[in-house]
Design a protein around this nucleic acid. Structure first.
Lengths: 201, 201
DNA sequence: TGATTTTTTTGACATAGGGCAAAAGAAAAC
DNA sequence: GTTTTCTTTTGCCCTATGTCAAAAAAATCA
């Protein structure tokens, strides 16, 4: 590959292919809409345990994950409460920042080394509010998140700790293997001692 | 008002004004988009304790509430678990039915007599996927629901029963007055005995 | 209005899961 | 490869909230 005169941060269609295929599972986005999106992306990498989003700080970026896993959490009374995990194909962003111009209330950190495509929240907002295909795609993203949390909330209300864990393990086997016990426990609303006992049978 | 030759179900701009104003709080929808929507509406009324959405049944309608209140619930092991309340200005629909062509997993019933504008899910889907303004408006609706349940879930994970009730009462004072103790209790994930004791101080 | 049904309140008792702390084990750093 | 740090496991005790049931109150109906 020859180096160009200008420093290029452009992401090739090839590099973007996997993420694009994932997006199309949510909503049929045309090549031209994808190209518009791709033009706004920058490839980036992060080590383990790096903060992508910080509470109270407007970092101004969102990330399409290509490799690795992240978790989102609040800190409540000094305790971390995990609210979601994102893996390959996921979009990591702060809704407060994207739509409300507020500083994020959540943190997002990498759980593993991450390869991602960064986009500024301004570009993401412009694209996902101004292009019908991308607006629909984004709506489906929100819809899916809503369904996940709705289900999780239902399980919280109706299942005891062991069954919540079993449901989680069945629905997200990969996350269940890759995340720390402590983080899974706080996601499920139980203590790590209890989860450890559950795993021990 | 004179009766026309054709049976008319058209909703006048005047009747629709309050709902329209509510919609514009979510997203700036133009008069023309609102008129397209309005053309698909039919005014309707329901008594107290009527089912608007039934589990396993595709009723094919969604409702813009103009007066009254509804609650959505699952039945889990014979127990009703309330998942949301909707009041004036709210849109009542089954996401399973609207986007996934599935029978609803939830029930929605009126808690009070309700005046609403009905729309078929087919029309609603067509409008909210095909018109940029209405797509954005619908995205905000989903976003807001997501934020509500996210908050509720956070409270479930971090607050004891009394404080969850207090947070609910502070955030939804009107719902808290109008809904039955039993339904609020199941929304909060506690038994009615416990909520009764909490209220008694 | 009185009769019936539904909802709320109250009591006695049981238990899932929390809190804390120490030990064991695993991973990271040097 | 040894040391340090982080994470998980385990034990003991405790309390918030559940369960069940009956009485009281409120709402609905005839």
């Amino acid at each position: 590959m020859t180096s160009s005169a200008l420093p290029t941060t452009t992401v090739s269609a090839e590099d973007f292919a996997e993420v694009a295929a994932g997006m199309r599972q949510a909503w049929p986005v045309s090549d031209s809409a994808l190209a518009q999106l791709r033009a706004c992306l920058t490839a980036c990498r992060f080590g383990k345990r790096r903060l992508l989003v910080r509470e109270g700080a407007a970092l101004g970026k969102a990330y399409f994950l290509n490799r690795g896993m992240t978790r989102s959490y609040w800190i409540v009374d000094g305790q971390e409460v995990t609210t979601s995990f994102s893996t390959e194909g996921g979009l990591v962003f702060s809704m407060d920042e994207l739509y409300y111009g507020l500083a994020s209330q959540e943190y997002v950190e990498t759980v593993e080394p991450v390869e991602a495509f960064a986009i500024t929240v301004d570009d993401l907002r412009r694209l996902t509010c101004g292009n019908l295909e991308l607006t629909n795609w984004m709506r489906v993203i929100h819809q899916n998140e809503y369904r996940r949390i709705h289900r999780s909330h239902k399980e919280q209300l109706t299942l005891p700790a062991r069954e919540r864990y079993e449901a989680f393990a069945a629905q997200f086997p990969s996350v269940c293997r890759r995340a720390r016990l402590t983080d899974i426990a706080s996601y499920l609303g139980i203590t790590s001692s209890t989860l450890s006992r559950i795993r021990a049978r």
